[in-house]
Simulated scan of single mutants.
Amino acid sequence: MGMRQVSATRVINAAPGVIFDLLADPAKHPVIDGSGTVVAAVGEEGRRLKLGDRFGMDMKMGLPYKIRNTVVEFEEGRLIAWRHFYGHRWRWQLKDLGDGRTEVTETFDWSTARIGLLLEWVRFPGKNLKSIRATLERLDKMFPAPA
């Protein structure tokens, strides 16, 4: 991990394609979000993201706001990342374990942010790591281990 990145990894009991479909559908982001800040996709119902796509989200961190993201990394079934106007990225990497399970890594990367020092000053990296872990926990609960 780089100096301006935090991430967490978890093995999820679902195939990479199933998980990628959730990540590539902005309307599903509130379902998996562990931060409690993602409220809803703005006009994104039924849309599947690809490289270069822009998508809007209704957010709430104390006060409600809207954010516009751009997909900046994309490999079908393996990698998707988006950034917003300040430049920091949310990256998802999926590794097929070959047995119906997937190793999922979510990363908050502020190495490309225009306000990197401000993000550190307000302690976003640590808060975001906590949220990443909560998101992976939610994802894990969506796909329980077979009995």
Rank of each mutant, 00 (worst) to 15 (best):
M3D: 15
V6D: 00
A8S: 14
T9L: 06
T9Y: 08
T9N: 02
V11D: 08
N13F: 14
A15I: 04
F20V: 01
D21V: 02
L22M: 14
L23G: 06
A24N: 11
K28E: 09
H29G: 13
H29D: 14
V31E: 12
D33F: 08
D33Y: 03
D33N: 04
G36T: 05
T37V: 11
T37Y: 13
T37Q: 14
A40S: 06
A41R: 11
E44Q: 10
E45Y: 02
E45Q: 11
E45N: 05
R47S: 05
R48I: 06
L49T: 09
L51A: 08
L51M: 12
D53S: 06
R54W: 10
G56H: 01
D58H: 15
M59S: 05
K60M: 14
M61G: 05
M61K: 13
L63V: 15
L63F: 14
P64S: 12
Y65L: 01
K66G: 08
K66P: 06
R68N: 14
T70H: 04
V72D: 15
E73F: 00
F74C: 07
E75H: 08
E76M: 10
E76V: 10
R78T: 09
L79T: 09
A81K: 00
W82I: 01
Y86W: 14
Y86A: 11
G87A: 08
G87Y: 10
R91H: 03
W92P: 01
Q93D: 14
L94E: 01
L97N: 13
L97H: 02
L97W: 04
G100R: 01
G100H: 01
R101P: 03
T102P: 13
E103Q: 07
T105M: 14
T107M: 01
W110M: 02
W110K: 01
T112Y: 10
A113F: 07
R114P: 00
G116R: 06
L117S: 14
L117R: 04
L117P: 13
E120P: 00
W121M: 08
W121E: 12
W121Y: 13
R123G: 06
P125Q: 01
K130Q: 09
S131T: 00
I132K: 00
I132S: 02
I132F: 08
R133V: 15
L136H: 00
E137D: 12
E137K: 07
R138Q: 11
L139S: 04
L139W: 02
D140M: 05
D140F: 09
D140W: 13
